[in-house]
Design a protein around this nucleic acid. Structure first.
Lengths: 346, 346
DNA sequence: GCGATTTTGGGTAACGTTTCCCATCGGGTG
DNA sequence: CACCCGATGGGAAACGTTACCCAAAATCGC
């Protein structure tokens, strides 16, 4: 008794033999290439179905395309990514491309390098980098090896396309909202960024800049008050603690990200302050939990699906023509007022 | 002026020439295979570094391994997955394997099939399926094509290993906790499952079963009250609405998942009921937002990292020996009491 | 009708690795 | 000193697909 033979996979040769044609013909049919008559097509397709043939991606990759798109995701916990991903997969659903996600590590350039290298090694046809923290040079290096689209990094490049949300405008909208409610002492918690090559490109910097500009243009330059921590719950907690220690406490806190706002809410609750009665709080990203009843956080919604859809579209265009001129798409966020913002106490 | 040649990638042949050895020798060094002297190894490694050579995964895949592990993720929004993923990547960090995530679709067997087929087409060395909804037959089919580990499906198989959390025990712990607080009218919101081939295998069914058994063994068989909706926020909202319409309202609601509990909290808030003053609420999964200050949801923590770590370990073992006997690992959850549960109103 | 052109189909050489061999070389054994 | 053996290195054939050709047949233009 032999062990059951590990059943060799059906190859293009098997299909060719079964359909009584050449492998070239089968290949042409598979790729909808020129040079196959309608009868040939139906004959081959029938053989494919009968044998349950599926092309071997490795063999294809050796010759060129792998029909695979890589999406680098630095932090899978960021609840904002699913929206982008939906946009990407939605756009790619009708194509032959398959999307795979490469998990990076939070703020970890090395992990990003590892993942992107792995994608390149695997001959992926294109890469979408979501909010990468890698240096500009590194991004250009990647893009020179494979068609790439960068999401969430402001700043132009000659080799890759970018899709961003207008963070400056979003921050300004939020400040406007708070001012309309009657606030003037509005503080901001930002993510600390030290690397000079990245500084202006990162969304956190843009949000802080949008905050500054809006405050100035609304005549509140004197009230500008920024605390630098990080875009984490912990960062929000610490930031709020610092703000509460101010002699003149702010009446509203604009946290640079929803997760930061969570930390702020926690600190305020511990301090016995009510939201929005004593102090208003707003986040950014409109993540899933922002809408949860007990939280109901005022936030700014980035058009996640559109970001993803645009990224996918640009990538396909770049795959089709690697030397096309790079495009920058900037989308507009929308304000989502909820129950954590209200007029300041009298 | 030529356009800059698209700079051919460095191949094993280039390395061999540069080191003045055969490609065979380079290959041996790369794979730490037998038949290369120490001097040969250093010489080749130097050439690899100098040229910045990286092996082409497609070519490797054509001959055998791709050093790629696929993780199928049906719902990227489920905030419980990152823990599992951390466990997986942590376990695989020191190996040559690279992890890629394949996004499925919520409760979408077809999407799962598409992703898993794509993984097989790409010659991935092994696949981890997280909480798949596919039929048993389909899972066995996958596992017969490639080493596979299934996470979150109870029920044994002869071809794949499984890693699960003891959902029956987790549900029982939660019921015990509520009973200890003094509750007896404890209702449960479950995810409706109709497919008979899956029914006993799915975690939702196990949680409901754990609830039933615990209620019975605590002498509360009469009080068993299950509402069947779905594991979504909407499902929680609807479930709670149904429960509030009961003539004898429950004093505690055990939602089958944290996200369900969010819907419950929303419905209760709308009904003007306070939590936990009027009614206690508990979830399951201990997702990130459960710990947020304003929510502070009592939940059950699955040992996510351990689940992932075990899955990765079992997969590597199975890759090493495809005919080893299948293993079932069942881990124990822990209760995380927070502020949404308290003694019932008098 | 006849040369020119288009359509149709296939042969075959890559692509970059791995793996199965075999050849060579030193040195130990009888 | 003949023989054998282990260690070391390399030649060459796959792996499954695509793309560049070329040949034959069918169609077209006049």
């Amino acid at each position: 008794m032999e062990p059951p033979a590990p059943q060799r996979r059906v190859t293009i040769v098997d299909v060719a033999r079964h359909a009584q044609v050449s492998t070239t013909a089968v290949s042409k049919v598979l790729r909808n290439a020129y040079g196959a008559s309608p009868e040939m097509r139906t004959k081959v397709r029938r053989a494919i179905d009968e044998l349950g043939y599926r092309p071997n991606a490795a063999a294809r990759g050796l010759r060129g395309q792998t029909y695979t798109i890589g999406v680098m995701l630095p932090d899978i916990r960021n609840p904002f990514f699913p929206e982008i991903l939906d946009g990407i997969t939605g756009h790619l659903a009708d194509t032959d491309y398959q999307v795979f996600l490469g998990p990076g590590g939070r703020n970890d350039e090395q992990a990003e390098a590892r993942v992107t290298d792995a994608m390149i090694d695997r001959g992926m046809d294109g890469i979408i980098l979501i909010a990468p923290v890698s240096s500009r040079a590194r991004l250009e290096h990647i893009a020179s090896a494979v068609p790439a689209v960068v999401v969430g990094r402001h700043g132009h490049s000659t080799v890759y396309d970018t899709v961003t949300d207008d963070d400056v405008a979003g921050a300004a909208m939020l400040v406007g909202h708070l001012v309309d409610l009657g606030h003037s002492r509005i503080a901001h918690i930002e993510h600390h960024e030290s690397d000079p090559t990245r500084i202006a490109e990162m969304p956190n910097a843009q949000r802080a800049e949008g905050y500054r500009r809006a405050m100035r243009s609304l005549g509140l330059a004197e009230e500008i008050d920024i605390v630098s921590t990080s875009y984490t719950q912990q960062g929000g907690y610490e930031g709020a603690t610092q703000l509460l220690a101010r002699p003149r406490r702010p009446t509203a806190v604009f946290a640079g990200a929803d997760i930061v706002a969570m930390g702020v809410l926690e600190a305020l609750a511990e301090a016995g302050l009510s939201v929005p009665g004593d102090i208003s709080v707003a986040g950014y990203d409109n993540t899933t939990f922002a809408s949860f009843g007990p939280i109901s956080l005022t936030s700014v919604d980035q058009a996640g699906r559109e970001i993803g859809g645009n990224a996918a579209r640009l990538l396909l265009e770049r795959i089709a023509d690697r030397r096309k001129a790079p495009v920058q798409v900037k989308l507009s966020p929308t304000l989502v007022p909820r129950r954590t913002t209200a007029p300041p106490p009298l």
